[in-house]
């Protein structure tokens, strides 16, 4: 490194160090029996795809003919054909009320995962006692967002900031939401909260430094007046976890294994089987919202 570099390594320096360690792509590819130029070009465009500068479909279109020429029958082709509408998963949650012990682990893990501010809990467990002593029973009813198929919130949103995704999740576009709170008023399940900008920073140093990448979007530290403050927030079935192939935090941490998560479009999935159980019911079905959270009584 140079004399005047101030002893600090710049990204460029790291790149140089990497170049020393990594093998030279050209010599490596020359060793292989396949075309060097094609490999180099594909690597370049693959980076574009990762950066979002090129669409994956386009990538496949560009290279499919040369790939077929190069690899013949061993080339499997792109995934353009099977990307039709409605073919993807439709996420559904099943909650077995007989297994729920009311420990609120789901509530806590949800708060930890989504780093929700004070006053906002995407998931709560509604506890009630029914009957008179000694004939008494405790009912624990966990309540995440129902991800309704006919969501009242999306119906009333003036800006289409909240909408139903193809995978069944009702999403909020925090960058579009104007914070009118009509959706909170219209939600029959009380599953939505307004972000007033409160913080746990007093109790927990560094709370503001990390936020959850809700809907797969990294927003950096929580700051005054910065989105999602001033907008409406809700459970997203941990969409950012689903993107990495993980279950929602509440499902993963449930101590009694009372929660199940899966694709209702797949007839062999656990949730599909449980959904057809005679024990299955949904909350406030009379409102016609068609929730995607199914309870087993």
């Amino acid at each position: 490194m140079a004399l005047f570099s101030n002893n600090e390594n710049k990204p460029k320096d790291y790149e140089k160090m990497l170049d020393h360690i990594l093998p030279d792509p050209k010599t490596e590819l020359d060793d292989s029996p396949y075309s060097t130029g094609l490999g180099m070009n594909m690597a370049r465009d693959a980076r574009k795809v990762i950066n979002g500068k090129m669409k994956i479909d386009e990538f496949h279109k560009v290279y499919s003919s040369s790939l077929t020429k190069e690899f013949g029958n061993s080339y499997a082709g792109g995934e353009t054909e099977n990307k039709k509408k409605g073919d993807g998963p439709k996420w559904v949650m099943v909650i077995d009320l007989r297994k729920c012990v009311g420990c609120d682990t789901c509530t806590v893990s949800c708060k930890a995962e989504n780093r929700t501010p004070p006053g906002i809990s995407y998931n709560v467990v509604m506890e009630s006692l029914e009957g008179d002593f000694p004939n008494i029973k405790a009912v624990n009813l966990p309540r995440p967002c129902m991800q309704c198929d006919k969501p009242a919130c999306a119906q009333v949103c003036p800006t289409r900031a909240t909408y139903k995704m193809e995978n069944g999740i009702v999403a909020v576009d925090h960058d579009r939401c104007i914070g009118c709170r009509y959706c909170i008023v219209a939600c029959p399940y009380g599953a939505r909260s307004y972000d007033f900008g409160d913080s746990y920073e007093q109790e927990m140093i560094g709370y503001n430094d990390v936020t959850s990448p809700e809907y797969g979007k990294e927003r950096g530290p929580r700051e005054k007046g910065k989105t999602p403050i001033g907008t409406v927030r809700k459970c997203s079935f941990c969409f950012h976890r689903l993107q990495r192939g993980e279950e929602p935090a509440c499902v993963e941490t449930c101590i009694g294994d009372a929660r199940f998560f899966g694709d209702i479009n797949d007839p062999n999935s656990t949730v599909s089987k449980l959904a057809s159980s005679p024990r299955a019911f949904r909350l406030k079905e009379e409102l016609g919202t068609q929730p995607s959270v199914i309870y087993l009584r």
Binding site: P158, T159, A161, R176, C177, I178, G179, C180, R181, Y194, D195, G230, T231, V232
Partner: peptide, 9 residues
């Protein structure tokens, strides 16, 4: 909550 986005409606 976000008055500056009023026109979004």
């Amino acid at each position: 909550g976000r008055p500056e986005r009023l026109l979004n409606a």
